[in-house]
Computed example of a mutant assay.
Amino acid sequence: MPRSHSSLQRLFVEPDLAPGAILHLDKDQSLYLAAVLRKGVGDEVVLFNGRDGAWLCRLTGDAKKAVTLEAIERIAAQTPPSGLWYGFAPLKTERLDYVVQKAVEMGAGIIQPVMTQYTQLHRLKPERLAANAVEAAEQCEVLSVPEVAPEITLDRLLDGWSENHGDRRLIFADEGEASASPLGMLEALRGEKLGLLIGPEGGFSDAEREKLRALPFVVPISLGPRILRADTAAVAALAIIQATIGDWR
């Protein structure tokens, strides 16, 4: 996005964006712009919908519960969706929010909670996960908001992997793997569709690790000599993948 627009508020919307389009924000977004940010007629914001790129838009109505805007011009082309699947064992609420937000920032295309034997949180609010993904995209100029897939048990995920994910390889951050650089393992996966699985605090159970390591599509990697918290491991693994064989190159 051009520097001149970088300071403008960004909002995700559902409607199509095109020159001259008139958009009516929902109550929550209207209150946020008109009451919290005190935006008024003539002020500009940036809207995106995950399909049409980023658009400079101008307020034409500033009622606190019904803000209207006109799309002026497209200022950034739509980026293609990421092909990286990211699965994680849900953590307690604040750290769960962090994990979802960082996954968006780091370029995950699909985010899916995976229930394991040692998962700490068993009651999720899908709408909260989706809201966190949208908020992260708004703040970090991400134009393709990742899909938040429904939670699934680890056994169901693995048993249906080939049917649901085809030939996608699954990178598995294995705390039991001998400490070593993962770069060689990742380089061997260049050009393939990828997924990343991060376990819960306490790691995977012995039975889960045994099942994972026995599957031909699973690639276990080490994240170094130190034991990482699950949320730290997620960011570390995503950064290594994107820097080595992902979209940072």
Results as ranks from 00 to 15, higher is better:
residue 102 K to F: 04
residue 103 A to P: 01
residue 104 V to A: 12
residue 107 G to V: 14
residue 107 G to E: 09
residue 108 A to K: 00
residue 109 G to R: 09
residue 109 G to M: 10
residue 109 G to T: 05
residue 109 G to D: 12
residue 110 I to Q: 09
residue 110 I to W: 11
residue 110 I to C: 09
residue 111 I to F: 02
residue 112 Q to A: 00
residue 113 P to R: 10
residue 115 M to N: 01
residue 117 Q to S: 07
residue 117 Q to V: 10
residue 117 Q to N: 05
residue 118 Y to I: 00
residue 118 Y to N: 07
residue 118 Y to L: 01
residue 119 T to H: 08
residue 119 T to K: 02
residue 119 T to N: 04
residue 120 Q to C: 03
residue 122 H to T: 08
residue 122 H to F: 11
residue 123 R to G: 02
residue 124 L to S: 13
residue 125 K to F: 09
residue 125 K to L: 13
residue 125 K to R: 06
residue 125 K to G: 11
residue 126 P to L: 08
residue 127 E to S: 12
residue 128 R to Y: 13
residue 128 R to N: 06
residue 128 R to T: 07
residue 129 L to W: 01
residue 129 L to M: 10
residue 131 A to D: 09
residue 131 A to F: 02
residue 131 A to W: 02
residue 131 A to P: 01
residue 131 A to E: 07
residue 131 A to V: 04
residue 132 N to I: 14
residue 133 A to F: 04
residue 135 E to R: 02
residue 135 E to F: 05
residue 136 A to R: 03
residue 136 A to D: 15
residue 137 A to S: 11
residue 137 A to L: 12
residue 138 E to R: 05
residue 138 E to G: 12
residue 138 E to I: 10
residue 139 Q to F: 12
residue 139 Q to L: 06
residue 139 Q to W: 02
residue 140 C to Y: 08
residue 140 C to I: 13
residue 140 C to V: 03
residue 140 C to F: 15
residue 141 E to W: 15
residue 142 V to I: 09
residue 142 V to Q: 09
residue 143 L to T: 14
residue 144 S to E: 11
residue 144 S to L: 15
residue 144 S to T: 04
residue 144 S to D: 12
residue 146 P to R: 04
residue 146 P to Q: 08
residue 147 E to D: 03
residue 148 V to H: 11
residue 149 A to D: 15
residue 151 E to P: 14
residue 151 E to Q: 15
residue 152 I to N: 10
residue 152 I to K: 12
residue 153 T to P: 10
residue 153 T to N: 14
residue 154 L to E: 10
residue 154 L to Q: 13
residue 154 L to G: 10
residue 155 D to E: 14
residue 155 D to F: 06
residue 157 L to V: 06
residue 157 L to F: 05
residue 157 L to E: 12
residue 157 L to T: 12
residue 157 L to D: 03
residue 158 L to C: 09
residue 159 D to P: 14
residue 159 D to Y: 06
residue 159 D to F: 15
residue 159 D to C: 14
residue 161 W to N: 07
residue 162 S to I: 08
residue 162 S to K: 13
residue 163 E to A: 14
residue 164 N to F: 04
residue 164 N to M: 15
residue 167 D to Y: 13
residue 167 D to W: 12
residue 167 D to K: 12
residue 168 R to I: 10
residue 168 R to A: 05
residue 168 R to M: 12
residue 169 R to L: 06
residue 169 R to W: 05
residue 170 L to P: 01
residue 170 L to Y: 06
residue 170 L to G: 08
residue 170 L to H: 09
residue 171 I to T: 01
residue 171 I to Q: 05
residue 171 I to F: 08
residue 171 I to D: 00
residue 172 F to C: 10
residue 173 A to S: 05
residue 173 A to Q: 00
